[in-house]
Simulated assay, not measured.
Amino acid sequence: MSEVTFEELFRRYMSGALSAGEIRLFRSMALRPENKAKLSQLLQEAFDDPEYAEHADFDAGEMAEEIMMKAKQSEVIPVLHPARKPIVARSWFKYAAAAAIFLLLLAVSWEWNTRKRKNPVAPVAQTEQGTARPVLILGDGTRIALDSAANGAIAQQGSAQVIKLANGQLAYKQFSQENTGLVYNTMQTPNGCLYQLILPDGSHVWLNAASSIRYPAAFPDNKRMVEVSGEAYFDIAKDDKKPFIVTAKGMEVQVLGTAFNIMAYADEDAVKTTLVQGAVKVNAGRVLHPGEQAVLGVSGELVINKPAMEEILGWKNGEFNFKETNISTIMRQVSRWYDVEVKYEGDMSGIELSGIVARTATISQLLKALELTKIVRFKIQGRTITVMPYHEAN
């Protein structure tokens, strides 16, 4: 990698051919003063392509400055490209470059984007991320909307106070050692919302969109047990005397102190537990090691594999991260995040995409970028998105 040129990295970046390490190298090289003009020139060459004349009103120099500013902040510069092989290599690069440039623009600044574009794409009504709200359900069924709750103690559950922290997280503080019995709380995140929770033992939980976790306000002396639906990332406080157990859609994960991700959405055909660090035992049998994933399918068979960790943890890091991902899997994630219904027309089999897209993008931005690959096209009717092969839609 020491002899590779910035221009070569740029072209390979646009076509999605860089590894994670090479992407970091590309970003660091983009920050060098001598590459500022080069970056502007490369962007301008892509914008000059007649096939993408709709982007001609962008100033490549300004965009290059914005990209470098984002690189300094270590933000994701997203790329999107079709995973299947192109028929013509040159036309493939043009499609990939157009999609990548479009998404680079989105990551820079939506405000700047709408100011500079002549014909900005209107977002689907009320489908930008972050519009839905998380809810805490207390033991007696009381529902607390956490976005409108004031910071500080918001409820008392058994021997614990429920506290909303200044950073928006939820935590539990024991004020008595008296055994008041188990009182269960449930945290729910609807479509388009993430939330962080600190459990009574100090374990941290990140909940993905359309997910929930049920847990006691104070754990008993012998074990810590919670139930999850949807997707959650755990960073478990170590306690050798009190094993931590997560149940989700037929899978049971036992841990002492570790970090792992579990995905158990009702509309997915498998439950997946992916270990980041430490060790877990799945269904009282197989022990996972860091980087391994246990997959429990509808047949009940447990399969162990090694997935791309950056793809599994993309949601927690604020991005969609696809690696040769089937379009239906992509659109299920889109549906949860933007709270839309997805339908399909035509033969969608074999359509796979790879890339990284910031979750701060609006749905219209994301769909437009997908269309620039000339692999898929979308029809928007209210809150319903119809997906179809690109050429069948023309």
Rank of each mutant, 00 (worst) to 15 (best):
P389A: 08
L367P: 01
N394T: 07
A393Y: 09
R383G: 09
T360M: 15
P389C: 12
F378A: 08
Y390V: 04
F378R: 04
I375H: 10
A393C: 13
E371M: 00
R377M: 08
I385T: 10
H391L: 15
L366H: 01
P389L: 06
S364I: 02
R377A: 12
A369W: 00
Y390W: 11
N394F: 12
K368D: 00
I380P: 01
L370M: 12
N394R: 14
F378I: 01
T362K: 14
R383A: 14
L372R: 04
A393P: 05
N394W: 10
T386P: 08
R377Y: 02
M388F: 09
Q365K: 05
T386L: 09
N394S: 13
V387A: 03
T373D: 09
K379N: 12
K374N: 12
I375M: 13
K379V: 13
E392P: 10
Y390P: 04
P389V: 04
T386Y: 05
M388Y: 06
I363Y: 07
T386D: 07
F378Q: 03
L372A: 02
V387M: 07
T362N: 14
I375G: 09
L370Q: 03
K374D: 05
K379H: 06
L366K: 01
N394I: 14
A361F: 11
N394V: 13
I363W: 06
T386Q: 13
A361T: 04
H391C: 07
H391G: 10
T362S: 12
E371L: 00
V387L: 09
I380V: 14
I380G: 00
I385Y: 11
P389K: 02
K368M: 00
A393Q: 12
A369I: 05
E392K: 10
T360K: 15
K374S: 05
E392N: 12
T362I: 06
V387C: 09
N394G: 12
T360N: 14
E392A: 11
I385P: 13
I363L: 14
G382R: 10
L370T: 02
Q365Y: 00
A361G: 05
H391M: 15
V376A: 07
T360F: 11
I375R: 14
K368C: 03
I363P: 05
K368I: 01
L366M: 08
L370D: 06
R377S: 11
L367F: 00
K374M: 05
L367E: 02
L366F: 09
L367M: 03
T384C: 08
Y390E: 11
H391K: 14
N394M: 15
Q365D: 07
H391A: 14
N394H: 14
N394D: 10
F378L: 06
R383P: 10
K374W: 01
K379E: 08
E371R: 01
T373P: 09
I375K: 10
I363C: 03
K368F: 00
N394K: 15
A393D: 13
T373E: 12
